[in-house]
Design a protein around this nucleic acid. Structure first.
Lengths: 204, 204
DNA sequence: TCTCCGTTGCACACCAGTGTGCAATCTACT
DNA sequence: AGTAGATTGCACACTGGTGTGCAACGGAGA
């Protein structure tokens, strides 16, 4: 399909990338509503024929993997930046959730996709994000900012699991969802309610 | 298969129910590991042939529905009992989680099954449980025992979503998991850490 | 106008799971 | 031994998704 080893024209390459990006964007929506959606569903939602999708992504796994890589890139960018600051761990967490929120909402499907066919592949790609999260929580526990009723690795998983769960609920969009997700995750990290509310107040 | 309208012998009926129950038990395990497992996988795990499974459950949906009904029955039993007591809402919640824990661990697959093919059917059957949970949380909010940063309906969903998430993690068995799930869910319900720890201490 | 190249439409093979039909078999009870 | 009934083994049709091959179409640029 697409390219057979020949150098493409400038304009055609633009058209190609436009289609490719549109497929990726729309795939996120479609899979978000139904993680079991097929290539045909994605194709028609993108206003394109199934055959065309296979022109850009040789297999369904390739598509999902690309999507995941995208998500990992965006998330690690935010997370490393937040992690680098010398703020208290709870403040860092609050800022992280606030900035992650739009991304989390878009990529909420990945949580569902972690079980099932491509679970292993996705899990592998998400490894770096998990590690950064665990590091942040560990830092909070070491400085007595977060509770220690669970090991950092699990606590971080559960905490950002909650964020995605809220991203998947009725509150998904709007700032209300972001506030709810931040406060809830802070509470379960052991931050007192008054402190949690103060923290989200700082970043509306 | 099984029965063609004729009255069965006593012993054969026993054998029948034994097989049926074994299929149900094993289906819970198999689907717990892989929600997309087929009838064949379930059958062979139960030491039986695929055809036999269809003898007891005319379709895959029937099997899943039966499983769900089982779960709903067990959960509502615990929940109504706990809900009827006049204890504080947080104490009631703690007792609920403690008693729900073994059940939750067994039926954790239902959470994954809520999305996907049979999502709607399962969601419908789980309705009563959701309502009881929401009532309990509402009671806690009205008596200022639980935080009000989220509406009761959503807060209850997120809270017991966490319980299942922990049931699905490495801590799944043992009393450690139960403690972790209880404390974490209490924290996110807005109960102060000291109080939460005191509550689980009461029910080891 | 001619060419490049992404896109389309249709063909096909393939696979995995579902659900059914039916004769054969095995087992417990009489 | 005879019988009822659950189980088995194998057949089949059907569905729905995947991935590929290939000729034809259509638009943008030389």
């Amino acid at each position: 399909m697409c390219n057979n080893g020949v150098v493409p024209t400038e304009s055609s390459r633009v058209r190609l990338n436009e289609t490719r990006d549109r497929i990726l964007d729309v795939a996120l929506d479609v899979l978000g509503e139904n993680p079991d959606a097929g290539m045909g569903d994605i194709a028609s939602a993108a206003g394109v024929v199934r055959r065309t999708v296979y022109g850009h992504f040789p297999s369904r796994l390739d598509l999902v993997r690309t999507l995941t890589e995208r998500a990992v890139t965006e998330m690690t960018a935010v997370l490393t930046e937040v992690n680098a600051s010398d703020a208290e761990a709870d403040a860092a967490w609050a800022e992280f959730i606030a900035r992650l929120w739009p991304v989390a909402h878009r990529y909420r499907v990945l949580l569902a996709l972690r079980r099932g066919e491509y679970g292993e592949a996705i899990h592998g790609l998400l490894g770096p994000v998990d590690k950064l999260l665990a590091d942040l929580v560990k830092r909070g526990q070491d400085t007595d900012v977060f509770a220690q009723h669970l090991p950092a690795g699990i606590l971080s998983q559960v905490a950002y699991g909650v964020v995605f769960a809220i991203a998947d609920s009725d509150l998904s969009n709007g700032t209300l969802g972001a506030r709810a997700a931040t406060i809830t995750s802070l509470l379960m990290l052991g931050v007192p309610e008054t402190r949690a509310i103060a923290l989200v107040g700082d970043q509306p």
